[in-house]
């Protein structure tokens, strides 16, 4: 049983590490905003730490009493990774739109300034 638990834990850690690496890859390829990435990597590191220390957490005593702790662990990891991938997908979209909004806001500010200059010139004539 303990060996099976270790296998599940190792599988979970591998999945979370892969997710961590995927997040860094999204940053590298400029798909994910750096400031969103900061928060997200923080959440992933906490998840990795929780899973690595699962045996020593109070929740382990509770799940072991249910005699299905491995199943619960698998479900928790599976749910986390599924939610994480969904959230990452949304964050990539948000990052892209944030970049577009930034560009639009800058161009709008520059255009307004040019319009003001032209208006002032026309008024002075």
């Amino acid at each position: 049983m303990i060996d099976f638990f270790s296998d599940v834990q190792n599988l979970g850690l591998s999945m979370l590490t892969a997710l961590f690496a995927f997040t860094l890859w999204l940053l590298r390829t400029n798909r994910l905003d750096a400031h969103i990435t900061v928060r997200w990597l923080f959440v992933e590191l906490i998840a990795i730490a929780l899973l690595a220390m699962w045996k020593w957490l109070p929740v382990f005593g509770y799940t072991s009493g249910l005699a299905d702790r491995e199943l619960i662990l698998i479900l928790v990891i599976g749910a986390f990774v599924f939610a994480a991938i969904l959230i990452l997908d949304i964050l990539v979209l948000l990052s892209k739109q944030a970049r577009q909004i930034k560009t639009l806001a800058q161009e709008l500010a520059l255009l307004r300034q040019r319009t003001d200059v032209v208006e002032d010139y026309r008024m002075s004539k």
Binding site: I101, K102, A105, Q106, L108, A109, L110, R112, Q113, V117
Partner: peptide, 13 residues
Amino acid sequence: QVLSLPVNLGIGG
């Protein structure tokens, strides 16, 4: 001359 940003972009933007 003023460049007025319609949304807050922070110091970098």
